[in-house]
Nucleic acid binder design. Sequence first.
DNA 1: TAAAAATACTCCATAGGTATTTTAT
DNA 2: ATAAAATACCTATGGAGTATTTTTA
Lengths: 304, 304
Amino acid sequence: MHTITLRQLRYARIIAEEGHFGRAAERCHVTQPALSQQIKQLEERCGTPLFDRLGKTVRVTPYGRDFLTHATRVLSAAQDLETFADMAADQPSRPLRLGLIPTVAPYLLPHLLPALTQRLSNIHFVVSEGKTERLLASVTEGDLDIALLGTMPPSSGFGDTALFSDPFILAAPGGSGLTNPVSLHQLPDDRFLLLEEGHCLRDQMLDACSLKADIPGRGFAATSLTTILELVAAGYGYTLLPAISLRREMSDRRIEIHELAAPGAARTLRLVWRTGSPYEALFQTVAQIARETGEALLASDIGP
Amino acid sequence: MHTITLRQLRYARIIAEEGHFGRAAERCHVTQPALSQQIKQLEERCGTPLFDRLGKTVRVTPYGRDFLTHATRVLSAAQDLETFADMAADQPSRPLRLGLIPTVAPYLLPHLLPALTQRLSNIHFVVSEGKTERLLASVTEGDLDIALLGTMPPSSGFGDTALFSDPFILAAPGGSGLTNPVSLHQLPDDRFLLLEEGHCLRDQMLDACSLKADIPGRGFAATSLTTILELVAAGYGYTLLPAISLRREMSDRRIEIHELAAPGAARTLRLVWRTGSPYEALFQTVAQIARETGEALLASDIGP
DNA sequence: TAAAAATACTCCATAGGTATTTTAT
DNA sequence: ATAAAATACCTATGGAGTATTTTTA
């Protein structure tokens, strides 16, 4: 009895997608009889048909559906291996897709992206922005190679590495009369301005301030830090800012920046990837570059 | 440029294991030059060597190590697919390995195994016994196909299905003067006899009785229910028994069996498997047989 | 009867075998 | 000097192509 080949699995999957041997053959760059042969062998190997030939179209049998579930796992792993091998040959066949959360992207990216493209000149980066939950989903689905997050990933199925600590800083309206360092307890609970649901920074701010999410009177939820800072500038309340945002956001004269008294009020940024990613070996380098970029950015803004 | 084949990966893995082309060739049932050819192609495809030829022996290069990590994933998935295909051809190539926890195995197995071998006559079953933690590890490692547990598996990487509820019953020394149904609060905490650490039943009993694990004076921890029942018979205390054990353990005249007043004092037995197991389609059948067996056993012992 | 898959056959790419050379200790 | 891998060359299996037949809606 013959052994199953990757070629057979590729053909079977494409026939399932097309529902038609002829069109599938085109997509495989072979003729229709070649395809029929391979599928015949596969079906003989299984002892049962994978497809129902209905004349005009072809449908996957119930057994074939299960078979293809397993086959897809093999093909994904094989695809990862090919990508990994391409990398070694210094010919990345596809770009490395990086995702960042919205409270990091606008501040870090202008410094990170030039550093990455310079020091990993053979890799092409494609960048996208999204909230934690969506980025993690994309990573598991294989739509994204790495995500830069402010939280720990779920324990299983992910690899991760810490980048650097990003301290929180208080932004207050001008003339607040506050003196450094500021203790959060001296500020009224109901004047903290927060991001909308789904931003990890929102939860971390609530946590740092020991606030409850459902305090009445805090109806407003902003979609970006920039929006929040407009409100702070207009005297509506306070907010916490991640230090990496200072370079861009601190220029406003109407806003005061204050150190916090609370020790350890910070988020730790992390790189997260799918276990088994073909780029795994690269991620330590990417992480190192991100660390250097982030630390340089923080040092220049909150340094001596 | 050529595409990577499963054959090449199999050869590479065996060379890595043997550290020797000649011996690897034997294990692959081909000649040494055939192997060298395939590896050469693979190394050309990667653009970098997978093995260091040291004269007497062969060592995997650092790159080769990473390559083989990916390759192993492909080969495992392919092996699962082959096993799945064998099943469809009604010619299971390897036995289905079932593991059970020690507080289920001796009671259920004598009824379950005959039922399984009769109704799934083409499958050969290999059975082993172990505590929850070890069984789950074996399942993830691929050393076991299914485990019958008394607890929920970790959420990710496992599939599972509930079998049936196994109520707890009180075993007391003869002449206890207790009347049905018994409320656990009326019994002294320090006279409950427990299994050793690692048995899920121990934790479930502690939970059902609202006991703390570290009550002083409970130094003893038995390794089996049989041992515990000897102690109950000798008047040392009480214990909870899972109902499936009654058939075997209730014969002792020195022991009284009592219903519990507490509602819902029971464990739910479950089948657990690794996501992607080639036997996945079979497990619903196995579960159905286990359900029927278990329910019949319970009905005959605690029924009307 | 028309569209699609299966079959028949031919060809060639490639895996594998045998004989030999090269390499590294 | 010797064990082991690489190379050279030949053979044969099987994947793919062209032409044709069979199937079914």
